[in-house]
Design a protein around this nucleic acid. Structure first.
Length: 738
DNA sequence: AGGGTTTTTT
């Protein structure tokens, strides 16, 4: 039972070479990196939880820890097949490595490559990319102690707001986004001799873009660059084909068997089925927690409520464990999220109802059973319509396998799928890559900044399609980031350097001209934080809305953007900065149902944007110093006033970025979009939901769910529309030359 | 008159 075959397959030009090795599964699985910050529900939220304080250790301590960890590393499949693997990595410029969970690929391969560099006295650093910040931080921390150094010495990491590298650093873990920024700054990535792309199977937009850039690099200015593509699923051929049929290595992982169960007949009520399934597991199976996958917040909250009701009755009538249900989704306040990590004490069984956040981003220990409804929610961008649709769709087979795998992380487990085996077979093999269903305005701007002329025919790892690219170009042209010939303008250059979407970057640039930069930065920072305004429970909804309206005088008139600025002003200027257990700021956040952690992020983004803008607009100021000094308004850090003119100017800046997202008030009190005349409704979360009397509205997001909803809505005057869309302005319909 | 999956940017 504990003997296990570990296999490395090598595939090159169609011929497969197999190497079989036998390995005893160790009792402990601590060679693997676990989620580092496991907040507990009792933990106070008063520390800056994004500041990872790395303890500095002395040399002897480092070396003894490293020696101790070596024995653990030796048990990892990747370590045991080191010679065989490195033979291929050394002989090939590009290699695809498929390593299952627990193979140790993310921690060991980079170290092997580093030792190689040292052995051959070669220069250059190694970059290892990750889709998520926490992963980059955790891996670097782990690998530093395996290597025997402090984080930031030879091994470090670089993520937004947290760069822990030094001139000594040769092995650097970083987020995909960070490597892309580096590509924009340093086109040839000269400092690196090896680039390792991890989790490539997730096919995030940023990973896909990096793959395209890397191919251009090795075919052009960097024939010496070594590339390793690491992936967890068998999408290997796609990666290999893209890089000219490079070799593919398979390394088995260390995971425990998961028995698969299917529903005999399909169900039309997934919440009901999922509850029945949990009750059945609770009665028939050994102890162990249950992780359930549902598509969204609505189903999750409903399931939690029902199960908590039912479980008490069941536990009393039969001698079975008491089930305790917890919700898990990203919009849940951090304090409530923390509950899912706490072990339950006594004769109880924890049941977690989660979105796909638990599929990759969050790992919960103690899970022995997975129940999968087989659905997820996905945002699909319709470039012809300029709006996003939010759809509930069946997951892919790869995703179903990933969900099931969550039951076999610590011991053998069981997975229950609420669909038939026949239906499973009909699911698509892989999830559609993000870039195929996203707005590509931002990627197109990156490519223009990089100097790519022919975007449609660029070597996309996955081409989003001509229509999508053309819409992106059109959008950038309207934002004045591109000129009539499709060349990037100085304004476009500035926009590409700001860490916000192109539309918001355009707003910031306009704000520097309108001398209200500081005010607009505050609003843009709030817009950049996801889930800053939390959804109150239905019972508290009206109460919270009342309080928000009462706190935001101008926001209640002008809408959500101005409300965000007023909320920021209260948080930042009026409330005490003290961070005791129940600080003024925390109490206020709770009262208005806004995220305390979110606001701390707003402040970080604000600082970064202020710094960038100061640098970016300095050159312009100098060029304009003939006579009077030009003011961009960055020094005016006042609270927003009641001045109609000031508020008007702020909203006009947003109008230059979101001209397309405007709608006119109709006599029947509905709104119709300026571009297509479609009906659009103000989202119920908006301050203006009840206010039907706006002459026109502008919104930063247009999402179709049950109907077309405008989010982040502001009241605008019709005259502003004409003023901002002047003939010399940026909305003239012109064909972009490609 | 009524509601949104997830990730990320020197």
């Amino acid at each position: 039972m504990d003997g296990k075959t570990s296999t490395v397959h090598m595939k090159q030009n169609g011929s497969i070479k197999k190497v079989n090795l036998f390995q005893k599964r160790p009792n402990q699985r601590d060679g693997e990196v676990k989620t580092v910050k496991m907040a507990t529900a009792t933990e106070n939220d008063d520390e800056d939880d994004d500041a990872y304080l790395h303890r500095h250790s002395g040399r002897n301590e480092l070396l003894s820890k490293s020696a101790m960890l070596l024995s653990v590393r030796k048990t990892l499949p990747v370590f045991q097949n080191r010679g065989e693997i490195m033979k291929y990595l050394n002989a090939n410029q590009v290699t695809v490595l498929i390593g299952e969970t627990g193979s140790g690929k993310s921690t060991q391969i980079p170290q092997f490559m580093y030792e190689n560099l040292q052995r051959n006295s070669k220069g250059g650093s190694i970059a290892v990319t990750q889709p998520r910040r926490v992963a980059a931080i955790n891996l670097a921390t782990r690998v530093a102690s395996e290597y025997g150094c402090n984080v930031g010495d030879e091994v470090g990491y670089s993520v937004r707001f947290d760069n822990t590298t030094s001139p000594k650093t040769r092995l650097k873990y970083l987020t995909d986004g960070m490597l892309l920024r580096e590509l924009m700054m340093n086109k040839e990535l000269k400092e690196y001799s090896v680039i390792i792309i991890d989790e490539a199977h997730e096919r995030t937009m940023l990973t896909d873009l990096i793959l395209g850039f890397l191919k251009s690099l090795i075919q052009g200015p960097r024939p010496d660059l070594k590339i390793v593509i690491m992936s967890a699923t068998l999408q290997a051929e796609t990666f290999s084909n893209f890089f000219g049929g490079c070799p593919i290595l398979f390394v088995e992982g260390r995971k425990f068997p998961v028995t698969q169960y299917y529903l005999r007949a399909p169900t039309d009520d997934i919440v009901d089925s999922i509850i029945r399934c949990c009750v059945q597991i609770n009665q028939g199976e050994q102890m162990g927690d249950i992780l359930c996958f549902l598509p969204g917040q609505e189903e999750i909250d409903k399931a939690v409520m029902i199960l908590n009701k039912v479980s008490h009755i069941i536990a009393k009538e039969n001698s079975v464990p008491l089930m305790v249900a917890y919700p898990l989704y990203a919009a849940l306040p951090p304090a409530k999220q923390a509950f899912v990590f706490n072990p339950v004490k006594g004769f109880k069984r924890k049941v977690i109802f989660s979105t796909n956040i638990a599929e990759t981003s969050v790992t919960i220990s103690g899970v022995k059973f997975v129940v999968d409804a087989g659905l997820r929610k996905v945002k699909v961008w319709r470039h012809q319509l300029g709006l996003a649709t939010l759809l509930t769709v069946p997951i892919s087979q790869a995703s179903a396998m990933q969900r099931s795998g969550r039951a076999g992380r610590e011991s053998s487990g069981k997975s229950f799928r609420l669909y038939s085996e026949n239906d499973y077979a009909k699911l698509p093999m892989q999830t559609e890559p993000e870039i195929a269903r996203s707005d590509v305005t931002s990627p197109v701007l990156m490519l223009k900044k990089y100097g790519v002329d022919n975007i449609v025919n660029w070597n996309w790892f996955e081409n989003p399609g001509k229509d999508a690219v053309m819409m992106g170009l059109q959008e950038l042209y309207q934002l004045a980031a591109l000129d009539d010939f499709g060349k990037i303008t100085p304004k476009g250059e500035q926009m590409s350097l700001l860490p916000v979407q192109p539309h918001l970057a355009g707003v910031l640039i306009k704000a520097s001209e309108y001398a209200c930069l500081s005010q607009v930065i505050d609003i843009v920072s709030c817009l950049s934080v996801e889930n800053l305004l939390l959804n109150p429970q239905p019972e508290q909804r009206d109460e919270v809305n009342e309080r928000r309206l009462a706190s935001c005088n101008e926001g209640s008139k002008y809408g959500d953007l101005i409300m965000l600025k007023e909320l920021f002003d209260i948080y930042f200027n009026e409330l005490s900065k003290s961070t005791s257990v129940n600080s003024e700021r925390q109490d206020w956040c709770k009262e208005l149902c806004v995220s305390y952690r979110g606001f701390k992020n707003v402040v970080k983004i604000r600082n970064q944007l202020r710094m960038y803008c100061r640098r970016l607009f300095k050159a312009e100021e100098l060029a304009n110093t003939v006579g009077e000094q030009k003011h961009n308004g960055l020094d005016n850090t006042d609270k927003i006033g009641q001045s109609k003119e000031e508020i008007g100017n702020i909203l006009k800046c947003f109008l230059t970025g979101f001209t397309k997202n405007t709608a006119i008030g109709m006599p029947d009190r509905s709104y119709r979009t300026v571009t297509t005349g479609e009906a659009v409704s103000v989202h119920p979360s908006s301050m203006l939901f009840l206010d039907k009397a706006c002459p026109a509205i502008m919104y930063t997001e247009y999402v179709f769910t049950t109907k077309g909803y405008a989010r982040n809505v502001s009241r605008i005057e019709l005259s502003w529309l004409q003023e901002m869309v002047s003939p010399s302005g940026n909305v003239a319909k012109r064909k972009v030359v490609e």
